[in-house]
């Protein structure tokens, strides 16, 4: 029985490989197109960030943080953190990572929020995609790293795609949560005054869900950041690269510095993304 079982192996892996082969042979133009668009997006964004003189950009970041949060402590922290990163020599890598994180978050929001809304309106759809979302978050990253590599080639794009796969469940889930927790009374107030479906979405559901969606986006940024090292494995530029290189050459100094830069960036992003307190009594 045992022998029979082992001798008649179900070729699951082969099937998947064949499927990926099928995609590469017949859908190559589609993937090339996606690759081109995403590559352009991320390349353009990185170039823009690197075009501005570092010190000016640091000043701009500090100013924006001040305008949003009005907190001296935060501004001082951001200035210190970014100057430290520059001092260590990781300015360019930091900007590349920032660009990757932002592009991944952008894609996640553009794709994830509409999916979340659609799922909130159709319970069956949510039932359907929930296991997929669980899968996307639990499956080891390396497993889908290989097919993305095959489909999109080396570089920033497979890194971006892997990052998106890993972090898109957060905005989808939280958008779904935000929209489906709109109190029935508010729907009725909208309907009673003649709101169309679109008006309900934009004037009732989205404003109500906004804090939750923002939380989802913050989570998405953090999850994306946690993917930088993995993304570096498939050739995406950024702070992951020195980490990988340090790993390969057992370079403790470089590994520590690059790691520190990632942590610093994570803290900065987390603090900046936190929702400023509303000045009214309750949120």
């Amino acid at each position: 029985m045992y022998d029979w079982l082992t001798e008649h192996k179900i070729p699951l892996g082969i099937w998947l490989r064949d499927f990926v082969d099928l995609l590469t042979t017949h859908g190559q133009s589609v993937f090339d197109f996606i690759s081109l668009v995403l590559g352009g997006l991320i390349g353009g964004f990185t170039a823009a960030l690197l075009w501005v003189p570092p010190l000016l950009l640091i000043a701009i970041f500090a100013l924006v943080a001040w305008l949003v949060h009005r907190s001296v402590g935060l501004v001082v922290f951001i200035l210190g953190a970014l100057l430290l990163v520059t001092n260590l020599g990781y300015w360019q890598a930091t900007m590349e990572t920032l660009s990757l994180v932002f592009c991944a978050t952008f894609v996640c929001v553009v794709v994830g929020v509409p999916i979340g809304i659609a799922a909130a309106h159709r319970p069956w759809l949510y039932t359907g995609i929930r296991p997929i979302l669980d899968l996307m978050q639990t499956i080891p990253t390396f497993v889908y790293l290989i097919p993305t590599l095959v489909l999109f080639g080396l570089g920033a794009v497979p890194g971006l795609i892997s990052t998106v796969i890993f972090s898109i469940p957060a905005p989808i889930r939280l958008t779904h949560l935000g929209i489906s927790s709109v109190p029935p009374a508010l729907y009725e107030a909208g309907k009673a005054f003649g709101a169309t479906k679109t008006q309900l979405l934009f004037k009732v559901e989205l404003p109500h869900a906004l804090p939750t969606i923002m939380a989802g986006i913050t989570q998405c940024i953090m999850l994306s950041l946690s993917m930088v090292v993995i993304a570096a494995l498939v050739g995406a530029d950024g702070l992951g690269k020195p980490v990988v290189r340090a790993l390969n050459s057992v370079n403790i100094a470089m590994g520590f510095e690059a790691g520190l830069a990632i942590v610093v960036l994570a803290i900065v992003l987390d603090r900046v993304c936190k929702r400023p307190e509303r000045r009214s009594r309750k949120g």
Partner: peptide, 22 residues
């Protein structure tokens, strides 16, 4: 129906039904 809701019939709710972000 929409026309009626917009122009002819309006409603006041027990729990007010106000939009807190406005």
């Amino acid at each position: 129906l929409r026309d009626i809701r917009m122009n002819t019939v309006s409603m006041v709710f027990q729990q007010f039904g106000l939009l807190p972000w406005r």
